[in-house]
Amino acid sequence: MWRFAGRRALAAVLVLFAISVMVFLIFFATPGADPAARIAGRNASQETLAQVRASFGFDKPMYMQYGLMMRHLFIDRDLTSFVNRGSQVIPQITQAIPVTLSLVIGAAVIWMVLGIIMGVAATAGRGTAVDPIIMVFGVIGVSLPVYWLGEVVNLITQSRLHDSWFAWVPPLGYAPLSDGVGTWALHLVLPWMTLAVLYAGIYARVLRSEMVGAMNEDYVRMARAKGIGEGRVLIRHALRTSLIVIVSLFGLDFGALIGGAALLTEVVFGLQGVGKLTYDSLQNFDLPVILGCVLYAAFFVVVANFIVDLAYAWLDPRVRHV
């Protein structure tokens, strides 16, 4: 297991390096375009261009340029945006990251718990009304668009019923953890649920179909023949083997959300997260910010995948040796 973790960590570092090289090549070595002009933004003056050239070393060889770039990003952390003149890129990103992480991790906890409970309950209730009812809730969750659901939630909690039932709901936006866990959670609880509804629906359905399949497996019949109780058969045998699929699905979804796919939720609830930042910088063609976002997003996606890989190996002994 430790060797597996070590190998995976090494692979993660290599992947990060490869991504940084690729991003660098795409942004700076695309033939036929002047990278300085792109970094400086639209309608840049001649002296801005010259400044950009000097600071990124565009007269130097490629590997030097790569090194300089990484230095600006990670060591000096002084990459500046030329579109929003003078604003530092890295602080923007380091402010956005906790917002996205808070949103996505909280939602992930909710959807995993809900999804697993719903999936197990539906499997246990096969042949009764429980199963189809839960599955219909799942479909409803999957088919509600997040921006619509978010707007409805806002409409109800921020205006229509804000003076009665939902007086406790704070105004839209993010409160950092340093304001206290309670304040932080209160600001995020509705975004969490909104984002979690979709995934809980998907996970419940996937888990149910996996578990129903597992319940027809020989090893479940064997477990019953051993005199194991139905609850234990369901949890320790059927759920345990079905979790493997859920965890690999989780790795994909979680990584994508951290990397910016939570954009719609962030926009609807006024959260300045990585998705929102990337979206804004794309709108202004703010290349340094885009670059920073891509690399930071890649970092978190790779780390999330590393953790998921470890969980996966812990769950499934068959992958530990590959």
């Binding site: 020989d218 023949a225 051993k226 005199g227 194991i228 345990r240 083997t241 499934d316």
Partner: peptide, 27 residues
């Protein structure tokens, strides 16, 4: 009853199935 049956399954009457490849929970 299910509870009585459970105490017989595996303790008084044991079963071996045809395919050993699938009879054990892989994890």
């Amino acid at each position: 009853s299910d509870a009585d049956l459970r105490s017989i399954r595996g303790r008084e009457i044991a079963m071996i199935f045809q395919d050993p490849m699938t009879a054990l929970t892989p994890v």
